[in-house]
Amino acid sequence: MTAPTGTVDLRGEPRRLRRELRVKRVFLAAAVVSIAISIAIVASLAGNAIRFFTEVDKASLLDVGWFPRRSRFDLLTPIAGTLVMSGIAMLVAAPLGLGAAIYLSEYARPRVRRLLKPVLEILAGIPSVVLGFFALLWIGPNIIVELLNSPKPATILTASIGVGILVTPLVASVSEDALRAVPQGLREASYGLGAKKSTTVRTVVVPAAVSGIMASLILGLSRAIGETMVTFMAAGAVGGALRTWDPLDSGTTLTAAIASVATGSDQVAGEALAFDGVFALGITLFAITLLLNWVSDRFVRRVREKY
């Protein structure tokens, strides 16, 4: 845009403009740090993971189980453990979280909602080591052994229930936000047509918020898959386990297997590749959660576009 002749130069003194540019560069640098972090994550995971995959005996990648210190690197074992664990965790968290969210958003009195919503948010911040402790010393002996009569207290199911409890407040909080975002007019229109409250909720409000609800479930699933401490403490055979799909077996997950090998050192006993194998698990985990985040992001964006 060229200024018409004769107007005053409003661009200000050069010193100020130079400072302006310097400041902008500083802020740009801060923003670019996040890209550097991503590159560092991918590079540090991929470096060791590639070394692992080139040097490992390919047959040991499909063995009977994940025993890194005995050169049995069955990747399917921790992946199966992760799928079973996060699946059951969501079976716990989805009904509890969604039920709580719908009740709070549609049925609860404003005062109850104002009281419980911050409670949920605070509960969503309970550190995972606390749930790990609870799973190991309460869920294991009381639910798994006493109630289900399993001989082993530390099983994948023990960890699953712990993780399910951990992500319930997250699912509840995020999907409650989505339900609240449904315009009031939609509800009123439904009542105006003579629909009952439960009909309105089931056929109008929940479908309108379905993108946000899906996003909350995917977010919860992603959190469950990436959760470490609960499985590390309560799943039993985290350092090495046979491949199993039975939740009442002791087992391991991607995260717990990483934690039990890489505790503070790249010096672990056994096979030289045991440590590099951890990065192979790490990059698998990274890829899964990245995919889930991408999907959840798509859902969230659809909500934004709608209203």
Partner: peptide, 11 residues
């Protein structure tokens, strides 16, 4: 924001 914390540990 969605990367599991243990991956940051590996980093």
């Amino acid at each position: 924001a969605g990367v599991p914390s243990i991956v940051y540990g590996l980093l």
